[in-house]
Nucleic acid binder design. Structure first.
Lengths: 144, 144
DNA sequence: TTATATGCAAAGATTTTGCTTTCTG
DNA sequence: CAGAAAGCAAAATCTTTGCATATAA
């Protein structure tokens, strides 16, 4: 059975190879935000005939076709998630590294309003919040 | 005359070398968001006795001391700006690459509220809007 | 003086690319 | 079959680091 993202690829007219099917499946099943190395690891577990170069090339292709979204959590490498219909954002728990997704209608409205006010049409945006759990306390946020 | 950021460094107890003074000055005078290479270029124009390695080390030091903020506009390298008192964000003009800064009190409140609702204390955040000028036309804004 | 900073070049990490072979449509 | 994709390894970016020398406090 074709994965959700595989369907999306076909819909967009992408030529489908075994590798792309596997990567589609990995990303369709991912509940998290894997980086390229992790995608490659999971893909290779399904079918080892897949190189890291192909993963890189495929991620770029998928990104340009809007099949996936590239994320950036500030750690120097790209993370990915399958493109979704809901506009959502991420809160990164800096203690655990956990990523919490959230949606917020007011935020959507506000972003549009700000862009319009500045004379722009919004075509993209990125919001990440970095936080620490509220009931855990005492973390010194001091220097080095 | 010491630059604004040089004062900040001294205030934070950082040992001041000629290189750090020059970098402080470059960043104090920057109205944009230079990357490391650009900082090095400008610093070397003032005093060539400064290596790219020192710029990297100094940027990290300054960032950790909260003398500067690291930004990320999604192009794979870090950008910097002197730390300011106002919480501001960036709208990137994807046509020209120009970066427009803005502040928005409602946004500040909203972010805090969202984090609190999710059970977190906000310690950082990042918001970038990507837009195209509204009075320039012809760009098909199609896509998913 | 003594710990710290700098320069240089080598090493790391992530991502891209040239070229040959393989495969999709 | 023709043009596109994959694999592999080399290269390109951006950033960090080891070590000897120079410098701030």
């Amino acid at each position: 059975m074709p994965s959700r993202l595989e369907d999306l690829c076909v819909q967009k007219g992408l030529k489908m190879t075994d590798q792309r099917r596997v990567i589609s499946r990995v990303l369709s099943n991912a509940a998290d935000h894997p980086d390229v190395e992790e995608v490659h690891r999971r893909a290779a577990a399904i079918d080892h005939r897949i190189s890291i170069a192909t993963v890189y090339r495929t991620m770029r292709l998928f990104e340009e076709a809007h099949v996936i979204d590239r994320l950036d959590f500030g750690d120097g490498r790209a993370r990915y998630e399958g493109t979704r219909t809901d506009h959502h954002h991420h809160l990164i728990d800096v203690d655990s590294g956990e990523v919490i997704e959230f949606t917020n209608e007011e935020m959507e409205r506000l972003k549009e309003a700000i862009a319009r006010e500045l004379g722009y049409d919004l075509i993209g945006h990125r919001l990440e919040l970095y936080g620490v759990p509220r009931n855990r306390r005492g973390e010194p946020s001091g220097g080095a």
